[in-house]
Amino acid sequence: MWSWVAHRVTGIGIFFFLFAHILDTALVRVSPEAYNEVIATYKNPVVGLLEVGLVAAVIFHGFNGLRIVLVDFWSKGPRYQKHLFVGVIALWVLLMVPFTIRHLSHVFGG
């Protein structure tokens, strides 16, 4: 049940970011200056931390989505749904550790 709640919450969060991200990318059509100025906010340390949260949400939503597909289409999926959830969390940690280290060293290391 909590994976279902987390899937909804991360989905809504990612969707609202997606709107902002399409609008900021659209600024390449205005001018290089306008685009660069807005993209500079993504390099700010506070926003950099939010990006770790965003990527955490994307990775969870992606792997948990794959788990949903397996539960729906793999004959043994429903029986192993809890094991699959452990797998989702394991893969999430496996990707989040190197991402967080590298991304934060970009954001804080200049």
Partner: peptide, 15 residues
């Protein structure tokens, strides 16, 4: 975000 200079490389020229 992971290759090269990551987020610091993002600008008009990158896109």
């Amino acid at each position: 975000l992971m290759t090269g200079d990551g987020i610091n490389a993002l600008d008009f020229g990158f896109v």
